[in-house]
């Protein structure tokens, strides 16, 4: 049975982006980003297991401008995916499907992710002694 030429649903770009749809695709995007981000954790752990030279190399990459930029992105992705994941788990038990509630929890997820990202980075710089 040929399935290649079946009509598709209307193209995504005809829809006006809504908070709910943007957050939905952002959950998937942050999930993929976090999967890639595990490489940094694995590198750091293997470096710590390998020796001082390997560890210092990993630390200097993480401390570089690019390293910090990636880590900032991953921090936000982690908090977003975590808090929106809890939103998904609530939906799984049948809670929060009303339109108003979906928007309220959506904005809550955005605010919580930004605030926790900032708090973590302030904490990180404090742990380093400001450096």
């Amino acid at each position: 049975m040929a399935t290649d030429n079946r009509p598709l649903s209307p193209h995504l770009q005809v829809y006006k982006p809504q908070l709910t749809s943007v957050l939905s695709i952002l959950h998937r995007l942050t999930g993929v980003a976090l999967a890639i981000g595990t490489l940094l954790l694995v590198w750091w752990l293997i470096a710590a297991a390998s020796g001082p030279g390997a560890y210092d190399a990993a630390q200097s990459f993480i401390g570089s401008f690019l390293g910090r930029l990636l880590l900032l992105g991953w921090t936000f992705a982690l908090f977003y995916h975590l808090s929106n994941g809890i939103r998904h788990l609530a939906w799984d038990i049948g809670w929060g499907f009303e339109l108003g509630t979906a928007y309220t929890t959506g904005w809550l997820v955005v605010i919580v992710s930004i605030v926790l990202t900032l708090v973590s980075w302030i904490g990180g710089y404090a742990a380093r002694g400001g450096g």
Binding site: A48, P52, Y55, D56, Q59, G63, T75, L78, F79, L82, S120, G123, G124, Y125, A127, R128, G129, G131
Partner: peptide, 16 residues
């Protein structure tokens, strides 16, 4: 994940 972030924030900049 919550534990991990707190632990990693505390460990920021740790030497070998």
């Amino acid at each position: 994940t919550i534990w991990f972030v707190i632990a990693m924030v505390a460990a920021t900049g740790s030497d070998y």
